[in-house]
Amino acid sequence: MNRRQLLLRGALLAALAPVVRASGVESVDAAGEGSSAPVLAVHDPAYRRSREFAAALQERGARVIALEPDVLAAWHQVLRAACAQSPAARITGLTTRSDFMVLSSLARSAGLSPLATRDADASGELGGVRRRATLIAWVLATRNQAA
């Protein structure tokens, strides 16, 4: 990790602290591997902030999953099975609003609800062209955790 990444990850964690806390990664880190509910950190590879946010959570014990080839496939091929295997799992990410909308809707029938959300402006890059999109940081958790 270079210095720029270190600074960006630190800034993201600070700015999105409520979401980070709600994700439970710190408790995973503190309690040691395997002793707490898993945290799945998803990211949109098109957005640097999204990647770095997931990477920062990975350093704290989260499992990182890219939304590839798209969010629908990621849910059906990876996330749904992971939630079935660990019903207390939490899913978190810094993604576009549309991806959050899709995921929160799909996860609803698996008993997951939004636990925390926070807006975060970010720019992305695809094909060498810079783009602006409003990203949102969020946590999905089982309803008893959300209550």
Binding site: L72, S98, A133, T134
Partner: peptide, 18 residues
């Protein structure tokens, strides 16, 4: 080919909330 939701990227046309 499975269903996709890539078309939802149209919501980024303006940037911000679409």
């Amino acid at each position: 080919r499975g269903p996709v939701v890539t078309r939802l990227k149209v919501l980024n046309w303006f940037g911000g909330r679409g």
